[in-house]
């Protein structure tokens, strides 16, 4: 028997087994939605990366096949256009730094609010959730004025009043590239922190209370409780938040594009790969969705690999042990 058919019959067998299992009842709805709104669209996107699709004209261009043309154009731009090169450097720096801010910040906030009284904790959570709840245009507006490179900017205004500077500093355009990166990491970091905070806080709330009380009785300090009880109990959530935020950051563009458009940050060092795709597909004069699809497919592949590696590194296999005691 040829190898491939062995494989496929095994896969088929596994599939049959899955369909027959009780779990399929719980998963059916999710799998249906995932198939319709993820799997099929991504297949369509892969297909579109081989067509000259632009300006949303599906009827006209979907039937034209141009082979690897879009991929060629993408790599040509990458090789020749310094702006496109800086997009990749920016993406790497942005993702690494913001990820650290998000996970550590979220964890610190969740733990810190655990040690303060309920009312204060609620207020702080609301405050830190605001960035996630604010409309993107308004959120961008806040930081646009906050970092504005003139005396109208909040930071410049304060520093000037304090006598620390004599002339406004242009962080996003004047200090290249680190000033631009600092702003985009800051702005996105604040949005991401709330995610970790909520996940970790609600997880901490589910930790059996007896553990903490017992530790307190034994005279444990805040630090002991954090290190010996909270963090170990949150392992699954830390893995989840890290991987999740990694992928989020690789694919996020919404909190960046207005900052770039309004000129607060340098275009080359404020644009990430995902924003580049968004700009190419939907913002430039010619909405080049074929090229964007090619850049997007490559992004999806790279992100998936990075996500996969992260899961492996963080011990996904161990955490995903089959549930004990299934009937």
């Amino acid at each position: 028997m040829p190898k491939s058919s062995v494989f496929s019959s095994k896969a088929l067998h596994g599939f049959k087994q899955f369909v027959r299992s009780e779990a399929s009842r719980f998963l059916a709805l999710a799998l249906f939605l995932v198939a319709v709104f993820y799997i099929i669209p991504i297949c369509i996107s892969v297909y579109m990366s081989f067509t000259p699709l632009r300006n949303w004209n599906i009827d006209r261009y979907a039937g034209i096949f141009v082979g690897l043309e879009n991929y060629y154009r993408f790599f040509y731009l990458l090789a020749n256009d310094p702006s496109v090169k800086s997009v990749f450097l920016t993406t790497a720096v942005f993702v690494a730094l913001t990820l650290a801010v998000n996970v550590l910040g979220g964890l610190s906030l969740a733990i810190a609010t655990f040690f303060v009284n309920e009312r204060a904790a609620g207020g702080l959570q609301l405050l830190w959730l605001l960035p996630r709840m604010t409309p993107i245009a308004v959120y961008s507006l806040i930081w646009y004025y906050f970092f504005h490179p003139s005396s109208i900017g909040t930071i410049n205004g304060i520093l000037y009043k304090l006598g620390l500077i004599s002339k406004p500093i242009d962080i996003g355009q004047g200090i290249i590239p680190w000033g631009a990166w600092a702003i985009i990491v800051f702005v996105n970091g604040l949005v991401g922190v709330s995610y970790g905070m909520i996940v970790f806080t609600s997880a901490i709330n589910n930790i059996p209370k007896e553990l903490v009380i017992a530790a307190r009785v034994d005279g444990a300090s805040n630090w002991d409780i954090t290190r010996k009880i909270l963090v170990p109990m949150l392992r699954w959530h830390i893995l989840y938040v890290t991987t999740w935020q990694l992928l989020s950051l690789l694919t996020t563009y919404d909190h960046l594009f207005l900052l770039v458009k309004w000129g607060l940050v340098n275009r080359d060092y404020g644009t990430t790969w995902s924003l580049y795709i968004y700009n190419t597909a939907f913002l430039t004069g010619l909405q080049d969705q074929g090229l964007a699809a090619a850049a997007g497919v490559i992004l999806v592949i790279v992100s998936s690999i990075l996500g996969f590696i992260t899961l492996k590194l963080m011990g996904f296999d161990k955490l995903i042990k089959p549930p004990r005691g299934d009937l």
Binding site: V34, I42, I44, S45, W56, I58, S304
Partner: peptide
Amino acid sequence: MLLILLHAFPGSVLVVGVAFI
């Protein structure tokens, strides 16, 4: 694994396919 890696598919890439559907 699939469920977490799906998150690597950004809305800006998916939206054209979703428009198809």
